[in-house]
């Protein structure tokens, strides 16, 4: 272990400052994620949040998960999000106004209550002096709070990567195999769901009153209603504004 990482993971002042800075980045990017109006900006905030959490994993003596976090989450999952955003062309401004009155207020109250209860339930016993991981107070069982034993001894024995791998292929090998089946099922499901159909009407049962919205017809149906000047552009591909479900539904009822 490099001296810098060792200093950051052994309960010194370096760990405190790392936690303060990286924790602030994680909280700020999480708030940015839910407050950014543009979905692409939200995805970039998500990358920042994942990288901050990867740093916290490294500080928490989970080096394997820190690397996996960067590769899988920041490298693959967010790229998949951005790919879908670009594919669908929905990078325009997303309306943050709520349709239900008081939705934001109620959601914030629920969030604050959730935070208070979660923090009290999980973090309550671990706030004292003895909960500083690997400290002498923790190892000797003195001081306030539940002791935090720390992974230094476990990781020093055979390394974090070897330790996790050994558990993965002995105690958890059955779960590991089931996970491979899950990944195959997910891949097959994505292929089946992503299959392009020539006629979107195949997706609904015949005789259903709800018909899918086709972009061209949706423009024609929405144009007289709201009088949007750009709604009738033939080469737009996708309607520029957010088309409501109502015109297509009314149109479908007329047709049947």
């Amino acid at each position: 272990m490099t001296p810098v990482l060792a200093q950051a993971t052994e309960g010194g002042a370096a760990e405190l400052w790392t936690f303060i800075i990286v924790g602030a980045v994680a909280l700020g990017s999480a708030l940015g994620l839910i407050l950014m109006r543009n979905a692409v900006h939200a995805a970039l905030m998500l990358v920042l949040n994942f990288l901050a959490i990867a740093v916290l994993y490294a500080v928490l003596q989970a080096q394997f998960l820190a690397v996996i976090q960067v590769i899988v989450y920041a490298g693959a999952i967010v790229v998949l999000f951005l790919f879908v955003l670009m594919l669908l062309g929905v990078s325009r401004e997303d309306s943050l106004t709520a349709r239900v009155p008081g939705q934001k207020t109620m959601a914030s109250i629920v969030g604050v209550l959730l935070f208070v209860s979660l923090a009290a339930a999980t973090a309550g016993p671990f706030l004292g002096d003895a909960s500083v991981c690997g400290s002498e107070a923790a190892l000797e069982g003195t001081g306030d709070g539940e002791p935090c034993l720390g992974l230094a001894a476990v990781n020093a024995a055979e390394g974090n990567l070897r330790g996790v791998g050994f558990l993965l292929f002995t105690d958890y090998v059955w779960a590991f195999e089931v996970t491979s089946v899950l990944l195959v099922i997910a891949a097959i499901g994505a292929i089946v769901l992503g299959r392009r159909r020539e006629d979107p009407a195949e997706l609904v049962e015949p005789g259903s009153t709800v018909l899918p919205a086709r972009p061209g017809e949706d423009d024609a149906a929405a144009a007289p209603g709201d009088g949007a000047p750009d709604a009738g552009a033939p080469d737009a591909g996708r309607p520029d504004g957010r088309p409501d479900a109502e015109p297509s539904r009314a149109e479908g009822e007329e047709r049947t």
Binding site: L33, D129, S135
Partner: peptide, 24 residues
Amino acid sequence: SVPAGYYLILAAALFSIGAVGVLI
């Protein structure tokens, strides 16, 4: 130095922010 509870508080805050985001 950092007691382990601080990380748990941070995780609770991130979870709550995510839940609020799903709602709004």
